[in-house]
Amino acid sequence: MSDEQYPSGLAERVRVLAQAFVESDLLRVRVERKHEAIELARNHVPAERLPELAPELEAASAAAPLKLDIVRADLVGIFHLGRPQPFEGERLEGDRELAYIEALGIRNPVRSRGAGRVAAIRAADGDPVEYGQPLFELDRG
């Protein structure tokens, strides 16, 4: 994409990139320009594409094995995603409050406890969660 084609507004840049991403076979795309980085990743690979992607996925996992760390609820309450909302595929540079669990009127932070990539968000905003319930999968690799 030439500089002339690249839109000037952030929202528009994301939209154009997303359009190109959806039409591609890529699992993840990251564009870095000066002080900005936009990364898009697929949550789920459509089942019909799994066979054709299998060698690619295998190669990828062999090259960089996932070090999945599951962040669990340490109390019972209502789960709320933090602001800004974390998203799947997002890279966390360091420790960050990803969400909080509201219990007995108290906001109890759920932290990433270090850097990593958000591989999956396992609970939805507003869900009641129990002790030990998986909330996030973080790839520490």
Binding site: L75, V76, I78, A103, L104, P128, E130
Partner: peptide, 16 residues
């Protein structure tokens, strides 16, 4: 940490 954990027992009753 479980059956005597009053906040978690009460929170369960409230959220359900």
């Amino acid at each position: 940490r479980s059956y005597l954990n009053i906040p978690n027992v009460i929170s369960t009753a409230l959220i359900t």
